[in-house]
Amino acid sequence: MTVAFPVAPRLRPLLLFAGLVLAIVATEHAVTTRPIFYQHPALPAAVVFDLLVVVPALFYWLVMRRYALPLSTVGAAVGVCLALAFWLLPASRQQPLRALAFLPALLEGAALLAAAARARRLWRAYSAARLQLGRGSSLALALEQVLGQAGVFLVAEINMLRYAVLSWWAPVAAHPAHAAFSGHRESGFVALMATVGLLTLVETAAAHLVVGHWYPAAANWLTFLSLYTVLLLVAHTHAVRLCPLLLGPQALVVRVGFVWQVVVPRAAVVATAIREAPASAPDTLDAAKVLLASPNVLLTFAAPVVVAGPYGTRRTVRRLALYLDRPQEFLGALASGAAA
């Protein structure tokens, strides 16, 4: 009995491209390893044409256009194909590749021109956004507008490094007109993060010694990932400390470190005290999980809101569970403002 595995339509162009490339590479390998390859001077040029023209063209039509990738990915594909050509062609038959010695300089010049064009667009977007936002927010918005998804990831990494390295003595990010409500003092969040970070460092050292005895390269990658995790924990700790919930005259600014953020009108929020996490539901988000605490406040919005998450993620919710150090004080402040 044959079992058919369905393939998502979105993956079909990528799988088709991969199959065609494997077929081309297998054919070129079979040709370059036959004695007849050395008897026909035109065959090396044909191999170079297939790898440096046909394969990038397939990548352009089947992958880049289908998945809306930036044009620079074609240059990366050409670089990979050039490496394949050097690998497939014997050293004595690489004359067509030597004729392409100018290609790296040409690609570098094109990359510099593209970078200059994007830098100009980035400055214009930053100047326009700065009229309405602060410097940090306007730069983040400009990067996302100009670079797309790559800009989203770049902004996330910049924020992570900023909190991890530059925020040890930074003041709390709050406005005098807003009441700030923290979520890390009473829960022991900082102590928990310090413990997790210390244990990660100890386990990293032990794993590096054990794994490095047999696989040094794997041990180095494992150590890098572990140190990156510690850096992320440090950044998260500082972000939670420096970004409290803000209650202003007109708006409620919910910030849970740099993980979850949303701004809603103050009059469109109803808050209640809770003792445990609400039941899991598509329109409910438990933001207290990233604080390693149980929520004690439940925000219910008059209409669904979009909560911004890390690396460009989004959640549309109607209810948001939080942990606050002074929940009753927050509930009273929010109710008094609504009554007024």
Results as ranks from 00 to 15, higher is better:
Thr2Trp: 10
Thr2Leu: 10
Val3Pro: 00
Ala4Phe: 07
Pro6Lys: 03
Val7Ile: 15
Leu14Gly: 13
Leu15Arg: 10
Leu15Tyr: 13
Leu16Lys: 04
Phe17Ile: 05
Ala18Val: 15
Gly19Trp: 05
Leu22Val: 13
Glu28Gly: 01
Val31Trp: 08
Thr32Val: 15
Pro35Lys: 11
Ile36Arg: 10
Gln39Arg: 13
His40Lys: 06
Ala45Glu: 09
Ala46Val: 15
Val48Arg: 02
Val48Gly: 04
Val55Leu: 02
Ala57Glu: 10
Leu62Glu: 02
Val63Pro: 00
Met64Val: 06
Met64Thr: 03
Thr73Phe: 05
Val74Met: 01
Ala77Val: 00
Cys81Leu: 00
Leu82Ala: 07
Leu84Glu: 03
Leu100Asp: 05
Leu100Gln: 08
Phe102Asn: 02
Ala105Met: 02
Leu107Phe: 14
Gly109Gln: 05
Gly109Thr: 06
Trp123Thr: 11
Leu133Val: 10
Arg135Asp: 13
Gly136Pro: 03
Ser138Cys: 09
Ser138Ala: 15
Ala142Gly: 07
Gln145Leu: 06
Gly148His: 04
Gly148Glu: 03
Gln149Ser: 11
Phe153Ala: 14
Leu154Gln: 00
Glu157Ile: 03
Leu161Ser: 05
Ala164Glu: 03
Val165Cys: 09
Ser167Leu: 04
Ser167Thr: 04
Pro171Phe: 11
Ala173Trp: 05
Pro176Ile: 10
Pro176Met: 10
His178Asp: 15
Ala179Asn: 01
Ala180Gln: 05
Phe181Lys: 01
His184Pro: 01
Arg185Lys: 15
Val190Lys: 08
Ala191Asp: 06
Ala191Cys: 05
Leu192Ala: 15
Gly197Pro: 04
Gly197Val: 13
Thr204Pro: 01
Ala205Glu: 12
Ala205Asp: 08
Ala205Pro: 02
Ala205Leu: 14
Ala206Trp: 08
Ala207Tyr: 03
Thr223Gln: 05
Leu225Gln: 06
Leu231Asn: 03
His238Asp: 01
His238Leu: 02
Ala239Glu: 00
Leu242Arg: 09
Leu245Pro: 02
Ala251Pro: 00
Arg255Trp: 06
Val256Phe: 01
Val259Phe: 04
Gln261Leu: 11
Arg266Ala: 11
Val270Lys: 09
Ala271Val: 12
Arg275Trp: 05
Pro278Met: 12
Pro278His: 11
Pro282Cys: 09
Thr284Met: 11
Ala293Pro: 04
Ser294Trp: 07
Pro295Asp: 05
Leu298Tyr: 13
Leu299Asn: 06
Ala302Gly: 15
Ala303Glu: 15
Val306Arg: 14
Pro310Arg: 14
Arg314Gly: 00
Ala321Trp: 13
Asp325Gly: 12
Glu329Pro: 00
Glu329Met: 06
Gly332Pro: 00
Gly332Trp: 13
Leu334Thr: 08
Ser336Cys: 07
